[in-house]
Design a protein around this nucleic acid. Sequence first.
DNA 1: TTATATACTAACTAAAAGGATAGTATGTAG
DNA 2: CTACATACTATCCTTTTAGTTAGTATATAA
Lengths: 110, 110
Amino acid sequence: MMESFKINDKSFACPVDLTLNTIMGKWKPVILNNLMDGKKRYGELQKLLPNVTDRVLTKQLRELETDGIVTRKVYPVVPPKVEYSITDRGRTIKPILDAMCDWGSKFKVD
Amino acid sequence: MMESFKINDKSFACPVDLTLNTIMGKWKPVILNNLMDGKKRYGELQKLLPNVTDRVLTKQLRELETDGIVTRKVYPVVPPKVEYSITDRGRTIKPILDAMCDWGSKFKVD
DNA sequence: TTATATACTAACTAAAAGGATAGTATGTAG
DNA sequence: CTACATACTATCCTTTTAGTTAGTATATAA
């Protein structure tokens, strides 16, 4: 049988593919970088990422949640209050983000 | 003025975005991993990646070439012979691929 | 009673990425 | 003269991803 890599029911033949699939998404790296500094409410994330729409922000957060990278904590209050934080698994992604940051930084201009 | 990161005329506000944009593409990581072992002819890559079509393989190779990650050497013979190899810049991506490989490997199942 | 704040959801559109299939160019071997 | 090998290119289609705009729920404050 062929070896495979699984994260919440999605299967990949190659570990790199699994990783890319998990942390890709136009806004996921920024979201993660922000959450590395501590938990954030939905509205805070909105302000930190002014160019992402609600629909997309929510979607990326849900995917990260499904993959066990972030947790979503809902407070039963009105108006609603929801906090997002990074999980332990999520923290293990940091070396990758750092490596990507280092590589990309070599292309800085003025 | 805002800082930015540029790779062949594409601008990014964040180094991670530049990196993702450069190495993303469904087949780029595999292509790169294969080229790390040494140059390959087009037909060899085709055999190594049996699930990618010509159109897409060519496209990914061209993008990698444009970004200075691989070089394309054409021999003026018939039938054609073209060799792809990784550049020095391309080799610097290895730590990222390795980090992604390590992370994804934690999700291995039987 | 009305407005407010917050975190969404719905319906739709647009753009990007990837895939399928078929075809092209041409020196050389037979 | 014909077939062959190789590395593509051209069309068209499907899927995936992202973006736009508008709307919802509801305890509380005024």
